[in-house]
Amino acid sequence: ELSGQWLAHVIQTMRLTYESLTALEIPNDMLQTIQDLILDLRVRCVMVTLQHTAEEIKRLAEKEDWIVDNEGLTSLPCQFEQCIVRSLQSLKGVLECKPGEASVFQQPKTQEEVCQLSIHIMQIFVHCLEQLSAKPDADVDTAHLSMDVSSPDLFGSIHEDISLTSEQRLLIVLSNCCYLERHTFLNIAEHFEKHNFQGIEKITQVSMASLKELDQRLFENYIELKADPIVGSLEPGIYAGYFDWKDCLPPTGVRNYLKEALVNIIAVHAEVFTISKELVPRVLSKVVEAVSEELSRLMQCVSSFSKNGALQARLEICALRDTVAVHLTSESKSSFKQALEALPQLSSGADKKLLEELLNKFKSSMHLQLTCFQAAAPPMMKT
């Protein structure tokens, strides 16, 4: 089968032939036959070129080098867009209508076929991303993460060779998905429009739906990988050493199980932040939702609290809630509220004072570790 490039060359030759024959005053019905042939060739050229593009995009996954820039992106979205642009650029002459020629897209059947092929191309790339997210660890030897240290303007990018974990790959693909949704897919829609493709809205809608579905699935996978161990550690941690809410000593501070949970949440923050700062709020808010929901469930399962037990529980719930305040959602706020409502109210001013003192002591002792949970300061205004 002739390639798109060859077909474009044939079309050019046919057009020149048509021009020459027109000058010879040949009957219109004969010329029309040539015009019909040229149109058929133009349509065929578009189809073949798009099919070739689809094959080329299938191979893009092999070109993923996992080198992440300061925005948390690899070169793959850019390579994808360039591939589409090159393909459309090669069709520029074919899509242009010479005098007397009809549009390639005049037939509804052609419009639909081109639309479906375009959707197919976009979905192939989404499938590439899915393949990359599920690559076995052995298939990825090293990667370069570009760390943004203080100021990239001053220090540039620092590249380190490290082995990628499956979780890091998930994050990188997620980061690429976000960029594709916000930029690349919209850019490609503009390129299609510039070349007079039809059904662009449908192409964009279907492609975006596939991308968002993948994004959500990968995001849920990542949250499951990260949140489940933290959630699972809460109950054993709470009841370690045969702890009993009905029979416990006056609280002297936040217990280790909660500190360990926070350290594990900090580790998630660090992993996400290293790859994509933009993903941090999305990931952390979901992890916090899962942890707060479990804490609420555990509190509601307690049959009764002693005064000391209620104070200890309130201290730990408030410590966690206050620490992750910047990542609270309506769901996690509701969980914390339900957890606190499961406790007896503080009966005296002394209890409230002790609670406040112990909370402050906790925040002070873990100040360094908890810094990552603080809201980012607004950028300084130039004066």
Rank of each mutant, 00 (worst) to 15 (best):
G199T: 04
L279G: 04
P344H: 06
P236I: 03
M47L: 08
E356H: 13
I266D: 05
V254N: 04
R44E: 12
N221A: 07
D137Q: 14
S296F: 03
S151N: 15
Q374T: 07
P378C: 04
E220V: 11
S364H: 12
T74P: 00
M30A: 05
T17M: 09
F192L: 14
K58S: 08
A54M: 08
E167N: 09
V291R: 11
H144T: 02
T329R: 10
Q79E: 13
S292P: 07
H127F: 09
L88Q: 10
L295W: 04
D215N: 11
V291F: 07
C128E: 15
L354C: 03
Q79I: 02
D228P: 00
A270N: 14
L24K: 14
E224R: 15
V43D: 01
L368Q: 15
S365R: 12
D139H: 06
K109S: 07
S151D: 14
L154D: 06
D228K: 15
E160T: 11
D65K: 14
V268G: 00
L16E: 13
L186K: 15
D322L: 12
S347E: 15
I275F: 03
V287T: 11
I11H: 04
S276G: 00
D139P: 00
M366G: 10
L41S: 13
R169K: 08
H127A: 13
W6H: 10
F155R: 11
V272H: 07
G241W: 09
S306E: 01
Y257V: 06
L320M: 15
D141V: 04
L170T: 06
V149L: 15
M47D: 08
T33H: 10
I203Y: 10
S334N: 12
S347G: 15
D161R: 09
E193L: 08
L174A: 08
S210H: 11
P77Q: 06
E56T: 10
F243M: 03
G156F: 06
V302I: 01
